[in-house]
């Protein structure tokens, strides 16, 4: 059992938790993920490590409430316990040798982008962060990004905060204005990452994407998280989750990600009924 040491509501659908997991905190690196089960008989879900504190022995997770499991997790409070918490899984993000990087995060994907931006900043890389949200209420980690970035572009779909537009608009402007990036690292919805890579391809800027497919064991056993990368089958849990964005078959990944959509919707509604809460 793993204790929840801190819980913080970041916005109405996104929650942060600090989990007491000293062994994982000791090893975790940006780009890696954990798998958790909220309770006995719960499903296994992967969540990216949003932060870690090796001294305190804590691992931070940030999750969006999208299904039954994240709903149940969100009903846990500080001092409660999570049944299983395993990691760190996956290959850490490569940050060596990068002088100037654009980190592009979308929505809850910013939770994954942040530790990478932080690590880049700490090693002296010039970091330009482009973060996008649907509207002002959904903005998360603004201060954190400000602290680790040389430049931050805040974008909202409806213009209620920052600049109105998509992350690709801001990224394009930065590139067009003459910013030269060694690499673009992008994390967010598949459709966003797809369009970021379509953009960066035009300028030939190496682009890394962080994939978050359906997983079960997460340790290289079941093969559920497979993706087509460069025409080959790759497993996000052991080969990734970071991949060369130019090689990822996003359309296939989007299809595969939707396999259990109707099941998930039903399960979420049932869980919400259980907690007597309306489905947003």
């Amino acid at each position: 059992m793993f204790k929840i040491l801190k819980k913080k509501v970041l916005n109405p659908t996104v929650t942060l938790m600090e989990i007491d997991a000293p062994l994982i905190a000791k090893k975790a690196e940006p780009g890696q993920f954990i798998i958790l089960r909220v309770d006995e008989n719960g499903e296994r879900i992967p969540l990216t490590v949003a932060d870690f504190d090796r001294q305190k022995g804590t691992v931070t997770i940030i999750f969006q409430i999208v299904g039954a499991t994240t709903e149940a997790l969100n009903h846990k409070e500080e001092g409660d316990y999570i049944q299983d918490f395993v990691g760190p899984l996956g290959v850490p993000s490569h940050t060596e040798g990068l002088k100037k990087v654009a980190v592009v995060g979308g929505g809850v994907g910013c939770a994954i982008a942040y530790p990478i931006a932080k690590k880049l900043h700490q090693q002296g890389t010039e970091v330009h962060s482009v973060v996008g949200f649907r509207n002002k209420d959904l903005v998360i980690l603004e201060e954190e990004f400000n602290n680790v970035s040389d430049k931050v572009c805040m974008m909202t779909d409806d213009g209620s905060y920052g600049r109105k537009g998509l992350v690709t608009d801001a990224l394009k402007d930065l590139i067009e204005s003459g910013e030269q990036y060694d690499e673009v690292i992008t994390i967010g919805p598949l459709i966003m990452m797809k369009f970021v890579t379509l953009l960066t391809k035009q300028y030939n800027i190496p682009t890394i994407v962080s994939m978050n497919p359906i997983m079960i064991d997460g340790t290289g056993m079941c093969g559920g998280c497979r993706l087509t990368v460069g025409g080959k089958t790759k497993f996000a849990c052991v080969d990734g989750p970071d991949f060369n964005g130019f090689e990822v078959d996003f359309d296939e990944a989007m299809e595969r990600g939707s396999m259990y959509k109707s099941f998930e919707r039903k399960a979420h509604e049932e869980t919400c009924n259980l907690f007597k809460k309306e489905v947003e």
Partner: peptide, 30 residues
């Protein structure tokens, strides 16, 4: 077509059914 929806590895299929107990009614793992 191996990555179409509805294509499983035996490992994934059996893990869902056995370890995650998706054969039971109202499973948490689909």
């Amino acid at each position: 077509g191996e990555n179409l929806k509805g294509v499983y590895s035996a490992n994934e299929f059996l893990t869902r059914v056995n370890l995650m107990k998706s054969y039971k009614e109202n499973p948490t793992t689909p």
